[in-house]
Write a protein that binds this DNA or RNA. Structure first.
Length: 120
DNA sequence: TGGTTGACTCGTA
DNA sequence: CTACGAGCCAACC
């Protein structure tokens, strides 16, 4: 009845939890892209959803600052409060950021964590 | 019920 | 390097 349309039982809350879990899985000193996080969470193409989830998150322990755009840039407008905070948090973990952009290329986290990691 | 918005991404010019 | 358009999907009004 009321077929589930096969869409599975994942609700918005469940998807959000999966996304948050992936964000927490980003190792310190490394970064990941929105699309990257979305894909790891089983939601390819839902980069905007990741952004929506982060904007709604209230967990101070969430390493949201490790999430960047595909260009390796901070998603906030440069100069905005959120931008400054993310920049500071990244630098605090040893991530080199220039002009709001992560050094080299973006988001390779578990691939380059041993290269770009702390102490790089 | 339906249009607008957004911490996005990609291709093209 | 910037600018623009199209695609995308959930939240909001």
């Amino acid at each position: 009845m009321t077929e589930n349309t096969g869409v599975s039982d994942d609700t918005a809350a469940v998807r959000a939890q999966r996304i948050l879990a992936q964000v927490r899985a980003i190792a310190p000193g490394t970064v990941a892209g929105y699309g990257e996080v979305a894909r790891r969470a089983g939601l390819p193409g839902r980069a905007r959803l990741v952004a929506a989830v982060l904007s709604a998150n209230a967990d101070p322990s969430l390493p949201w600052h490790r999430v960047l755009r595909s260009d390796g840039r901070i998603a906030f407008p440069q100069g905005s409060p959120g931008w400054h905070e993310q920049l500071q948090r990244l630098r605090a973990e040893g991530v080199r950021v220039e002009a709001g952009r992560v050094r080299g290329q973006a988001a390779k986290a578990d691939l380059d964590d041993h290269v770009w990691g702390p102490g790089g």
